[in-house]
Every structure is written in C-alpha cells, then in structure tokens.
Amino acid sequence: IDVRFTVNGLDVTVRVRTEEIAERVKELAKNGVDWREIQRIAEELNK
C-alpha cells in the first residue's frame, strides 16, 4: 500500500504492508512528524 502525504511542501510516498500501518503513517504525517522519521518508523513497522 502506498501512502502519500505532504510535509513542509514535500510530497512523500511511503510503501507499507498493511492498512493499519498506513493509518499510523497518516497520523504521524498529520502531527507534523519529520518525513525521515516517518520513513524510519514505517520501515520498522513493515518488518
């Protein structure tokens, strides 16, 4: 599942395995978490 969001004007796409992880990623993006941090968290959750 590809999750797309915009952080500080940057369009970011993170690929995740499940809808649940996708929701977590969207939540982080909404809360203004840095995209590199979101990427790292997504990689952890995908394991």
Rank of each mutant, 00 (worst) to 15 (best):
I1N: 03
I1C: 06
I1S: 05
D2L: 14
D2I: 13
V3A: 02
V3M: 07
V3L: 13
V3E: 01
V3I: 12
V3G: 00
R4N: 13
R4G: 07
R4Q: 14
R4K: 15
R4D: 06
F5Q: 01
F5R: 00
F5D: 01
F5L: 15
F5E: 01
F5Y: 05
T6L: 08
T6K: 11
T6P: 05
T6G: 03
T6D: 06
T6V: 12
T6R: 11
T6A: 07
V7S: 10
V7Q: 15
V7N: 05
V7I: 12
V7R: 04
V7G: 04
V7P: 01
N8E: 09
N8Q: 10
N8K: 07
N8C: 07
N8I: 03
G9S: 04
G9H: 05
G9I: 02
L10V: 15
L10Q: 13
L10I: 15
L10N: 10
L10D: 08
L10P: 01
D11G: 08
D11Q: 14
D11L: 14
V12N: 02
V12P: 00
V12K: 07
V12Y: 15
V12H: 13
T13L: 12
T13W: 12
T13D: 04
T13F: 11
T13V: 15
V14W: 04
V14R: 00
V14D: 00
R15V: 12
R15Y: 12
V16T: 05
R17I: 13
R17S: 11
R17D: 07
R17M: 15
R17W: 13
R17F: 15
R17H: 13
R17Y: 14
R17V: 15
T18Y: 03
T18A: 03
T18E: 02
T18H: 04
E19R: 11
E19M: 12
E19G: 08
E19C: 08
E19D: 09
E20N: 07
E20H: 09
E20R: 08
E20F: 10
E20A: 13
E20V: 09
I21P: 00
I21C: 02
I21V: 06
A22C: 04
A22E: 05
A22F: 04
E23I: 12
E23Q: 13
E23S: 10
E23R: 13
E23Y: 09
E23H: 11
E23N: 13
R24M: 14
R24N: 04
R24Q: 12
V25T: 01
V25F: 02
V25S: 00
V25H: 00
V25C: 05
K26M: 14
K26Y: 11
K26A: 09
K26W: 09
K26E: 06
E27A: 11
E27R: 06
E27Y: 09
E27S: 08
E27P: 00
E27H: 08
L28T: 01
L28V: 02
L28Y: 05
L28C: 04
L28H: 04
L28A: 04
L28P: 00
A29V: 15
A29E: 05
A29L: 13
A29S: 06
A29W: 15
A29C: 08
A29N: 06
A29Y: 15
K30I: 12
K30T: 11
K30Y: 11
K30A: 14
K30C: 07
K30E: 12
K30L: 13
N31Q: 15
N31L: 14
N31C: 13
N31S: 14
G32D: 05
G32N: 09
G32A: 08
G32Q: 07
G32V: 06
V33I: 11
V33Y: 10
V33T: 11
D34R: 05
D34L: 07
D34S: 13
W35N: 03
W35S: 06
W35Y: 13
R36Q: 15
R36N: 14
R36L: 14
R36H: 13
E37F: 04
E37T: 11
E37K: 06
E37V: 10
E37I: 11
E37Q: 08
I38T: 01
I38G: 00
I38V: 06
I38F: 02
I38K: 00
I38S: 00
I38H: 00
I38N: 00
Q39S: 08
Q39K: 12
R40Y: 08
R40C: 10
R40L: 11
R40A: 11
R40P: 01
R40W: 08
R40Q: 11
I41F: 07
I41W: 05
A42H: 01
A42T: 07
E43M: 10
E43P: 01
E43C: 08
E43T: 09
E43G: 06
E44Q: 07
E44L: 07
E44G: 04
E44W: 09
E44Y: 11
L45R: 01
L45K: 02
L45V: 02
N46M: 03
N46S: 05
N46F: 03
N46K: 02
N46V: 02
N46D: 06
N46T: 02
K47V: 12
K47R: 10
K47A: 15
K47S: 14
K47F: 12
